[in-house]
Design a protein around this nucleic acid. Structure first.
Lengths: 237, 237
DNA sequence: TTTCTTATATGATAATTATCATAGGTAGTT
DNA sequence: AACTACCTATGATAATTATCATATAAGAAA
């Protein structure tokens, strides 16, 4: 079991579009939401199904995936604490175009469509937050698309390590540690994230290790030389 | 020269988020907009620059592109008549992440940020339209990303031909023609759209031609067998 | 039309990446 | 602890795709 999060003192809420709610609406949000603990590997929703509300990630990590004809998986994005899941489908009035799966034990809060839309209409600022949120998702998707189209696997892998490190940083900063570690994704998932084969990822990681860019301990990957990784990733700043 | 389009009877406007405007606001829109004719190949804005307003495509076709380190171009999407351009950057408060270039002679209307944001605040429905618009862009980007990650070039090419044919259909339907023709993109642009080399596209098109899937007349590509193309593209419906 | 430039086409070859096979580790379970 | 299942690792090989070279054709301009 797990402790159901309370909206009024939820840090996650204050980072999301629900930050604009006040007083009784926070209470309504809290009363209407349904929180669920998804164990690692469990699905939140499936590609092709119809959204009935939206999800907010309170704890853990979620992968958003598409499945190809031959059953191969592509990870569209990784969802971090505070992000909403399923906005695009609900707002766009479409079925889910991808599935979502917990890659760590995760607490996910669900809010029904009716209440969500009511809040959007009542709070214009919430609509603006959602536009901004969608804009950022689009920017990330277009960036990733560009990498897939323009960069070879080696560069994409270095890029994804840096990207994940940035995403996961808050986890470590909370513990006041200065480590750069990636451990939530298997090699296969890393491959599915950058659109290549598992063996190719493993091989390239071995090379990165030989070149002292990273260290490997089991499934854990430690980033040792971030500047050099950026060079390998062909990232200019 | 060209005739400046008038907003009040503009079909393009009624397909966009500006459909919600009424009376004096339509007049204000009309008076504030600046329309420009971009000849084929001319740029509307550049990756990295700061948006000062939004653009609406009244006539023609625009490509949205990113440039890789080595100068290679990737076409993120093709913009059709009635679509807004630059929404993501303006709403997200970011610089342009991609450039835009006319691939046909195009008339583009520009509206300054101030007036645009004023309208969004005045018309909540316009905000909702924009959310829906962003949602659709995101769905398309995620779909394209999935194709790049999961599908080999051959499938992506067949897919893009079908995609472009659907996009360009209205052009022909207006003339009551039942032809399926793609002629606005060069082979190089087709390659940049699907993330491969120009020669690879040319080779695969030759194969498609040999297999009677398409016919080729100069730069023009005619789709002869759409069902078979769908099979090649691995599209299920 | 003729010329000039650019795009398309095709072959040869190299580089990248995927697939198949198999061995060795790791972590979870009884 | 020992068993089991799965994940990581590495080699060998095949398939895909890119690059370079060059010929031909198409379209733009004089």
């Amino acid at each position: 079991m797990f402790k159901k999060p309370e909206c009024d003192d939820c840090l996650t809420r204050t980072k999301s579009c629900f930050v604009h709610l006040v007083n009784e609406d926070i209470i309504e949000l809290n009363e209407n939401k349904v929180c669920t603990l998804y164990k690692k590997g469990q699905n939140i929703f499936y590609e092709g199904s119809k959204p009935t509300g939206i999800f907010c990630l309170n704890k853990g990590k979620i992968k958003i995936t598409k499945i190809g004809i031959d059953g191969k998986e592509h990870i569209v994005r990784i969802v971090m604490v505070g992000d909403l899941i399923g906005v695009r489908a609900l707002i766009g009035g479409r079925n889910y175009a991808s599935s979502s799966t917990a890659i760590e034990d995760s607490i996910v809060c669900y809010l029904n469509k009716h209440t969500f839309l009511k809040f959007i209409i009542k709070y214009p600022k919430m609509a603006h937050s959602l536009m901004t949120f969608l804009s950022h998702l689009l920017e990330e998707s277009d960036y990733k698309m560009g990498s897939l189209a323009l960069k070879p696997v080696r560069e994409r892998l270095a890029e994804s390590l840096l990207y994940l490190n940035n995403k996961f940083k808050p986890d470590f900063d909370l513990q006041n540690q200065n480590i750069h570690q990636i451990n939530s994704l298997s090699r296969e998932e890393l491959a599915n994230l950058i659109g290549t084969a598992t063996e190719t990822v493993i091989r390239l990681l071995s090379e990165f290790k030989k070149d002292k860019l990273i260290a490997i301990k089991g499934r854990k990957i430690f980033l040792l030389d971030i500047p050099k990784l950026k060079k390998v990733a062909n990232i200019i700043e």
